Computed example of a mutant assay.
Amino acid sequence: MRDEIKTWRHVFKLDPDRDILDDDLELICMSGTDAIMVGGSSGITYDNTVDLMSRVRRYELPCVLEVSDLEAVVPGFDLYMIPMVLNTQHSQWMIGRHVQAIEQYSHLIPWELLIPEGYIVLNGESTVAQLTDAITDLDADTAAAYAQAADRLLQLPVVYVEYSGTFGDMELAADIRRVTRNARIFYGGGVVDEQTARQASQICDTVIVGNIVYNDLQQALKTVSAVKA
């Protein structure tokens, strides 16, 4: 299952703290997307995570949890994505909280199902940037250096270019892509229609589509074919 992420081109990211109708969830899961990622920056609980996972589980596609809160870690997901914020100013968001989790739950951790992600957070107005106190005003050279550190020094399987809430600088994303040899480049942020989906897919390996699901489902569904065309 870990190797399957290398084939993902399009992923819908659903927030347990936001409501979605059963009919809409069916359209999302039957859209041809490669996986459903469950996660968010705030309001995530064990109960709302269990509820969303059980609803997605009715469909035959990978369902993965991006772990943002230890209290909301739910067994039964296919994979667990573990964010490590590379450009944070506080070590807890890079490794500190991860060590705390291992101290508490090492005997329960399904290590074979964990996928670490090296996040480069680039929208200073986003919740994740403010929560992690990320240094977001990076030029292309510095962003590329973070990507190289994740790819070659830390040997992370995923570098996540995160613009959360706004469509990002594709030239900077391309610079990150050029210097990365082994890690898969995930892109998230501001993918709201076919055009933005296509732009991101031409540079990055995997396009994550999130907020537009809740604002304009029909536009969200169109991003699948735009990415895979």
Rank of each mutant, 00 (worst) to 15 (best):
E171V: 10
T223S: 06
N215G: 06
L52G: 03
L52N: 01
M53I: 03
M81W: 14
L27P: 00
A144W: 09
I208P: 11
S54F: 02
N182A: 14
T180P: 02
V179D: 13
R55H: 08
Y119I: 00
H90K: 13
A220P: 00
M94A: 14
D151Q: 07
R58H: 15
V85N: 10
V161T: 10
R177E: 06
Q202E: 15
D47R: 05
A226D: 11
L156P: 08
G39L: 06
D169H: 03
L65H: 14
L122A: 04
L61R: 05
Q219M: 09
V213S: 02
D78T: 03
W8C: 07
G76L: 01
V161D: 11
Y146T: 00
W93I: 00
I36M: 08
C204T: 14
N182L: 07
N211A: 13
Y46C: 03
E26H: 03
D175M: 08
N48F: 11
A147L: 03
A183P: 04
T166N: 06
P83E: 12
D23N: 09
R9T: 07
Q218D: 14
Q202C: 12
N87E: 09
R181N: 12
Y59N: 06
G189E: 08
Q104V: 01
Q89A: 08
W8A: 07
S164K: 02
Q89T: 15
V207P: 14
V11R: 12
Q202V: 06
T180N: 04
N123F: 13
V128H: 04
I5C: 08
D24S: 11
G188N: 12
F186P: 15
D15P: 12
I109Y: 09
D3H: 12
L114S: 03
